[in-house]
Design a protein around this nucleic acid. Structure first.
Length: 286
DNA sequence: AGTAGATCCTGGCGGC
DNA sequence: TGCCGCCAGGATCTAC
């Protein structure tokens, strides 16, 4: 399910495939992915335009042109963006095809069509469309991050996944970050200690850095994400059987041993002079 | 300010 | 084998 790292990967695809090239043809195979725009209007806005450098904000990808118009792409749960040659046979879930000069094809694929494409007529429309987004998780500094948590009574996982608070994190990333920071997903955000807040921020930085580099959330053995499915659902850190609860309607996987619901006074937490990296796996390097 | 639940959407899977 | 219903989840909506 595309989260910030995946969308960052799609931005790379769009940039290397499209930037500087002209849109020759826009083909909408399934108008079910168009939000508030018709296929004809999308064509008129894009055909003949040259693509400019794309931008990502949270889980949105902004396709910019040398004109006023921009297209906002959201990938929902199953969306993808591919660069291929025009001769490549259409995939079943190709929803929109952008034929570019230089023999390049950009294809927006999406099986479930939960989100889709929006057209923004100008820069002001882009800003309006994204006005509800919180700061991007990748570029947020620690102090503002801690400030975001401070005033919120909601469960910490709900806060992390709320795009109007913090943009970019989805279900898998939120679980991974909480597991690395050893914070139970149902703890109220404003009840975390300062130390836990710092660990959470550190885990977020680390998880984002590694996943952006990989272009997705890696399902490696040392990551919680690698243990969500299948029979062997045990914690990669302590081998305890993983717990599964629902938080804000989302399946939430956590380790009952590493992420206790009730925590004692801060003073009881072991102090480490050097300070372990918050997400450091004690078994092997991820 | 917070929650739950429905909605959209498709395919995979368990149960019968 | 085939049909039914559930589940997955990102965003958005209503109801409480």
């Amino acid at each position: 399910m595309p989260e910030l790292p995946d969308v960052e990967g799609f931005r790379d695809v769009l940039d290397s495939c499209g930037t500087g090239r002209r849109v020759e043809k826009v083909e909408v195979a399934d108008a079910g992915v168009l939000r508030g725009v018709s296929a004809a209007r999308l064509r008129r806005a894009l055909e003949g335009r040259r693509l400019a450098a794309p931008e990502r904000r949270g889980k949105y990808l902004i396709l910019r042109t040398d004109g006023d118009a921009a297209v906002l792409l959201h990938f929902g749960m199953t969306g993808r963006l591919l660069c291929c040659s025009p001769g490549e046979p259409a995939h079943r879930y190709d929803r929109v095809r952008f034929g570019l000069t230089g023999g390049r094809d950009l294809r927006y694929q999406d099986q479930r069509k939960l989100q889709g494409l929006r057209l923004a007529d100008d820069e002001a429309a882009v800003e309006r469309a994204l006005a509800g987004q919180g700061p991007d998780a990748l570029s947020l500094d620690r102090e503002p991050f801690l400030d975001l948590l401070a005033g919120r009574r909601a469960r910490i996982k709900t806060v992390l996944m709320d795009q109007s608070v913090l943009a970019g994190l989805g279900n898998l990333l939120a679980d991974e970050i909480l597991w690395r920071a050893r914070v139970h997903p149902a703890r109220p955000a404003d009840r975390l200690s300062a130390e836990e807040g710092r660990h959470l921020y550190g885990a977020m930085r680390q998880v984002l850095r590694l996943s952006v580099r990989a272009g997705r959330v890696p399902g490696r053995p040392s990551w919680l994400t690698g243990h969500r499915e299948g029979r062997e659902r045990t914690c990669p850190r302590c081998s305890t059987s993983l717990g599964s609860i629902r938080v804000s309607g989302r399946t939430t996987v956590f380790c009952p041993h590493c992420q206790p619901r009730q925590v004692g006074p801060t003073a009881r937490r072991p102090r480490r002079a050097g300070g372990d990296p918050p997400g450091a796996s004690h078994r092997r390097n991820g």
